[in-house]
Design a protein around this nucleic acid. Structure first.
Lengths: 155, 155
DNA sequence: CTGATTGCAAAGAATTTGCACTGCT
DNA sequence: AGCAGTGCAAATTCTTTGCAATCAG
């Protein structure tokens, strides 16, 4: 389940409602992001966008991502730098979730929990800190890899 | 309180106990990290280390940080990219904590909570995911900045 | 119309790498 | 003594910027 889609209303819709210029490039980028089935980095987003509009430039991708972050329509992830220092992006959903990155197989799991929501509330209450963006990532070993290692012990 | 120190035993001690070569460069870097009173990025670490040993090279800093991450003696932070894309480093403490980054004044607060520990346990139990490293960061507005804004309303 | 947005090309920031030399253990 | 670790310089990766041309509203 590493889908980054499934958001109530379309990104294009939410974007234009805010009175921002909806250029063809932005439309394409929003559509690609919305329909992505995995976490995209800037280069992948560019590649996919170019399948629809070959003239789109790298700079536009970065500028649009910056804008979408500010609008809080997309979140930026590191995924524990499992694959270099690039960033990944996903469209914001109803609720925040944690990303679990397996150092062994590279799989990314998502995890949401009331405890996570409670923790954020505790931060607001105890510190008076108003959270705009939150990112929690864990690196380690997923259950599937733990199983595999059990089968073939230590080698 | 943005101290990154206060760890039971010295880094140098923990490092050499693991049977790794303790070169003069590594010793200096470990000592600088240990006594740092704020979160250091690679460039600051290099600068401080050079005050003690002028010949230390950037590459050594990066290679040593990589090693210390693997050994789990230091953690890598982004601090919500408040100041560019560089990384920050802090020596690992008894317990994990969350970093709260104020977008307005740039201050970094730390926050630890049993709820956070509970959340990590929940991840282990429910997903069978063994966490090696965890990073939680929140960006928003700190209480001091909220106060300031109250005084001088909307501009 | 006209200012926001774009493509292009070049620059910039952070980090990594190949290789000959050095110095721990 | 031997090999892991280092400095140096160049390369790489990811992202940003200046500017003239374009296009959405």
């Amino acid at each position: 389940m590493e889908s980054a889609s499934q958001q109530r209303r379309s990104l294009v819709e939410e974007f234009s409602e805010r009175g921002l210029r909806l250029t063809t490039q932005r439309r394409v980028l929003l559509e690609v992001m919305q329909s992505a089935t995995e976490h995209l980095d800037a280069a992948s987003l560019l590649r996919l966008a170019r399948e629809r509009d070959a003239s789109i430039d790298r700079a536009t991708v970065y500028r649009t991502l910056e804008l979408l972050k500010k609008l809080r329509l997309v979140d930026e992830l590191d995924l524990m730098h499992l694959n270099g220092e690039k960033h990944y992006y996903e469209t914001r959903r109803e609720s925040d979730h944690i990303h679990l990155a397996c150092f062994q197989c590279g799989k990314i799991e998502e995890f949401g929990s009331p405890l996570f929501e409670g923790l954020k509330q505790e931060i607001s209450r105890q510190r008076g800190f108003r959270i705009n963006v939150v990112r929690m990532e864990a690196g380690g070993r997923c259950s599937a890899c733990a199983e595999k290692t059990k089968e073939k012990p230590t080698k």
